[in-house]
């Protein structure tokens, strides 16, 4: 991408977002939306152009739609005056994000995203909103702090300087890119490699291959390691069949493990410690949530000391006193 254009597009987006943050109505809102979307579109077009991709690819179209949707929903999240709507728009962001995940081949993460975020986290938000939100007037925004965006200029400035910086990194991504074929070969090589750690799967695939080849699928034993072909599309493994003959089984790309399998394998082999830590985090979060959710009674410092069996200090807790008053 050409940075000046990139920055210009970011700036347009920024202006659009800034205008939207000021809660315009009617045509102004429409104009701001169009401005923001135009900036976004320009940004995306630049991104696609910069990738150097030729020809039409339906995946790109889907991805573009997803990105646009995610962005629009995100903007709504921060511009809407009603937190409930914000949460719902956030669900939309999550869904659009999941689409993008899917397009990029992260199927497992796409669905877990929806399950965890939309299913669990956002529901929590909804509960809290219901607990904490004051009853809104009919149709109108509820409270002042929801209606007005504070210091939108500073916020937009910060945000879009960051955006421009990040986007210029994105624009730079291409120089480090390798030929697509090589990338695929390497990826497949990695996947084959990972497959070596899954003997059951290899066994299953070889058995199926032998059966398909009309050989005796039973009683074979490996006669060497899995040898990946140069382009990574196939892998060959010599086996000694039950009849003592040697056979070279050829596994094709379709035989590679699916996303969730690989992911699981990666998780337990490369990041076992992190996994444990994540568990601890979740545990602590649970404990914390329990503690926090315990019924709190407003007690002054002295009362609390008394409750804890300490001597009273006769200190007036101004804050609480004020609250009580």
């Amino acid at each position: 991408m050409i940075p000046p254009l990139l920055y210009a597009a970011s700036a347009i987006c920024a202006v659009g977002l800034f205008l939207l943050l000021r809660q315009p109505t009617g045509k102004a809102r429409l104009g701001a939306t169009i401005l923001g979307l135009a900036g976004l579109a320009w940004l995306l077009v630049q991104g696609v152009q910069a990738s150097g991709a030729l020809g039409f690819d339906p995946r790109v179209a889907i991805m573009s739609l997803a990105v646009a949707m995610a962005t629009a929903a995100a903007v709504r999240v921060i511009t809407t005056t009603r937190p409930v709507f914000a949460a719902l728009y956030f669900v939309l962001v999550v869904v659009a994000g999941a689409v993008a995940y899917l397009v990029m081949g992260a199927e497992f993460m796409a669905f877990s995203l929806i399950i965890v975020y939309a299913g669990a986290i956002l529901i929590t938000y909804m509960f809290v909103l219901m607990l904490a939100q004051q009853a809104p007037d009919a149709g109108g925004p509820s409270v002042a702090y929801d209606r007005i965006a504070r210091e939108p200029a500073a916020a937009v400035l910060c945000g879009f300087v960051l955006l421009a910086a990040l986007a210029s990194v994105v624009g730079d991504a291409r120089t480090t890119k390798q030929p697509a074929a090589m990338v695929e070969a390497r990826a497949n090589a990695a996947a084959w490699n990972r497959m070596r750690g899954m003997p059951e799967l290899v066994q299953e695939r070889i058995t199926a291959e032998l059966a398909a080849a009309g050989k005796d699928p039973m009683g074979w034993s490996p006669a060497g390691g899995l040898e990946v072909a140069q382009d990574g599309r196939t892998a060959m493994m010599p086996v000694t069949l039950a009849d003592g003959t040697r056979h070279e089984t050829v596994l094709k790309a379709a035989d590679l493990p699916v996303n969730s399998t690989s992911l699981g394998w990666e998780l337990v082999t490369s990041y076992p410690g992190s996994l444990e830590l994540a568990g601890v985090i979740l545990l602590m979060a649970m404990l914390g949530a329990v503690v926090l959710a315990r019924r709190q009674t407003d007690m002054a410092e002295d009362d609390r000391r008394a409750a804890a069996g300490l001597s009273r200090m006769n200190v007036e807790d101004a804050d609480l006193a004020g609250d009580r008053a």
Binding site: C13, L17, L40, L43, L44, G47, V48, A50, S51, G52, A53, L54, D57, R59, V60, M63, S64, A66, V67, A70, T71, A74, V75, V77, I78, V93, G97, A100, V103, M104, G159, F160, L162, L163, L166, A167, V169, V170, A173, R174, K177, P179, A180
Partner: peptide, 20 residues
């Protein structure tokens, strides 16, 4: 050779989401 437009879009989207 041409790069992957999906990656580009994904990165852009991530940047935009983060900024927003």
């Amino acid at each position: 050779p041409p790069g992957d437009p999906l990656v580009m879009l994904g990165l852009l989207a991530s940047a935009i989401l983060f900024a927003v």
